[in-house]
Amino acid sequence: MAAVFSDSGGPTRDELRAHLVRTMIAGDVATPRQNNLLHYRRMAARNPYYLFGLDLKPTWTEQEILRVMVERCGVDPNPLYLYGDDTIDPELTLDALEAMGDRIGLAAERRERVVLATGHPATLTPIYQAVARALAGRGCQILTPAAGWTYEIETSYGTEVRRIVYAPEGVAMLEGDDGRTHHTHDAAPMEAMLADLVGAAPTPAEGSRELERSSWPDLAIADHGWAGAAGQAGIDTVGFADCNDPALFAGADEGKIDVVVPLDDGVSPHHYGPLTNFLLNRAGLS
């Protein structure tokens, strides 16, 4: 059944809540509890792939991670719930969308320099493109540093090359030698983008470095390691995260990430349309 929304420039909060639950962007989501708990364990063990470029405090135990995921994402609080699908509280999603919209609206008002990037190019790109287009229309500068920068990763198929590319409207993502865009948790691409803004792109082995704040973006809108690296660098950062991506929520708890919107980041792209309209309307950009 098609969703019905008001004609006021975007769905109301109640209308969007119903849509989020119906499409499983929030509410009962398709992310398995066992996958969530596995990622929580790996973050607690400080596996870099699950830290998203954030230098988090060493006090993040599995229990503390579950606590923050209950508070900021709305996963099931029962520590004995080990198998089955997990949950995202749609009220928390809506609250965070409003906060994100407020920060994006401020960026438009100030005509800030903005960088946008996604580790989920197959699903979340249209949200970022719509926001970038709206911000550019208000005089913001959409930054596109380090285009073509490459590094190597290890996969189950061996060593592969990834490069930074930009979708139309200026949204950064990773592309492989196969010409396809790829999912990533990595922080190295954002670190390279920030370094490129001061004319000193690092090699992968060099990692992060002190960067000149005057050359940085005023705002990063991102997810996964793109968001983590920006927040770790001290840039105002807002972004999206699934219930199996605890690092950004922990980063928000530590004050390194400004806003994290909890949602299932793997549903069909068109389902995010009402969410995008709500976000832009909140930002005053619809």
Rank of each mutant, 00 (worst) to 15 (best):
D7N: 13
S8W: 07
G9E: 02
T12M: 00
R17W: 01
A18K: 09
H19K: 02
V21P: 01
M24H: 13
A26N: 06
D28P: 09
V29C: 07
N35C: 02
N36S: 11
L38G: 10
R41N: 08
R41E: 05
A44G: 01
K57C: 11
K57W: 05
T59V: 13
T59L: 10
E62G: 13
R67N: 15
C73I: 04
G74Y: 12
N78F: 14
L80N: 13
L80F: 13
L82Q: 13
D85F: 14
E91N: 14
L92R: 14
T93F: 03
A99M: 12
E109F: 06
V114N: 04
L116H: 08
G119K: 00
P121N: 00
P126V: 03
R133D: 15
A136H: 10
W149M: 06
Y157P: 01
G158F: 10
R162W: 09
P168V: 06
A172M: 09
M173K: 08
L174T: 12
D177N: 11
D178M: 06
R180N: 12
H183S: 09
P189L: 06
L197P: 15
A200K: 02
T203R: 15
L211K: 09
W216Y: 12
A220S: 14
I221Y: 00
A227M: 02
G231Y: 00
G234S: 02
T237E: 06
T237V: 05
T237P: 05
V238Q: 04
F240G: 08
A247F: 00
A247I: 01
A250H: 03
G251N: 00
V259W: 05
V261Q: 07
P262V: 01
L263R: 07
P269M: 04
L279R: 04
G284D: 02
